[in-house]
């Protein structure tokens, strides 16, 4: 194993206690340091189960998961793992423990037994990184959904994680809250080199990840760059997922006979391609 491997899942299967069928079966996934990996899948695809396996909340029924080289099956390593792989959940209200923002950010540090003098600067820094310093003394229930999620991120950040796993962290937010949270995570990925596992069913949020992993029926169905994954419009639709509107439009134009190239994702690319094709058809004499 290369030592910049942050997440390693080998042939992982997981079956819930009362379930007949496994929620995940034979999943293989390697994530290197600094990668931004989006995991796409519809509800019940197994993507949330995967998230919880990566933070030792669940232990695989079969196969193994290692976080920064720590095997999640070893009980004595569990705190090492959770400190390194911080997790953000879907419901902003249900992950804030304290009644004051800064005290909530402190929660993880308190659990780790960080000395108080060291805690204060770490909290201040974490809050300033997510641009919530202003709200350090506010009550969480007065904040917007996006702000609450940023507090949750600060709580993780203070623990100085190597990996952040966001399990549908934007599903309950409005468009501006979604942008706020995604921008914050992207910034952490780019500027601090934190590895990000971004679990979502919003195709738009996966569009500028380094890599997209599509999960369905408990298995990894696709794994590639956004361009590779999203240009397979029919396959994505089969898996009940959205495709970027431009990729869908390109596909339809192609089906109608227009020579549009593969791999179009953005409006700019589409404009260029349509312009080019229309000019060619005019000047083909």
């Amino acid at each position: 194993m290369r030592n910049d491997t942050h997440i390693l899942a080998e042939n992982v299967s997981y079956t819930y206690d009362d379930a007949a069928a496994p929620a995940l079966s034979h999943v293989n996934l390697t994530v290197r340091q600094g990668e931004f990996v989006a995991v796409l899948g519809h509800n019940g695809s197994g993507k949330s189960t995967l998230a919880k396996l990566l933070n030792a909340l669940y232990v695989p029924t079969d196969g193994c998961v290692a976080v920064c080289g720590f095997d999640t099956r070893k009980e004595e390593l569990v705190w090492e793992i959770r400190q390194r792989a911080g997790m953000i959940f879907q419901n902003p209200d249900n992950q804030i423990v304290a009644t004051i923002v800064k005290e909530d950010v402190a929660f993880g540090l308190e659990n780790l037994g960080v000395p108080t003098e060291e805690m204060i600067p770490r909290i201040e820094k974490a809050l300033s990184v997510v641009r919530m310093s202003k709200y350090a003394d506010s009550a969480p229930h007065m904040l917007s959904g996006g702000q609450k999620q940023r507090v949750a991120i600060a709580g993780i950040l203070a623990m100085e994680p190597a990996v952040i796993i966001a399990d549908e962290a934007t599903a309950m937010l409005d468009p501006s809250g979604r942008k706020e949270v995604l921008d914050t995570i992207r910034m952490l990925n780019r500027q601090k080199g934190i590895t990000v596992i971004w679990i979502t069913h919003f195709m738009e949020e996966a569009a500028d990840a380094d890599r997209v992993v599509v999960v369905s029926d408990g298995e990894v169905q696709m794994d590639g760059t956004p361009r590779e994954v999203f240009s397979q419009v029919d396959r994505m639709r089969q898996l009940h997922l959205d495709v970027p509107p431009m990729a869908a439009l390109a596909e339809e134009l192609r089906k109608a006979g227009m020579p549009i190239r593969d791999g179009i994702l953005t409006i700019e690319e589409m404009v260029q391609e349509v312009e080019k094709t229309l000019c060619q058809s005019k000047s083909a004499t």
Partner: peptide
């Protein structure tokens, strides 16, 4: 449709 996946 808030919070639902594309199929829902």
């Amino acid at each position: 449709t808030a919070g639902l996946d594309p199929r829902g």
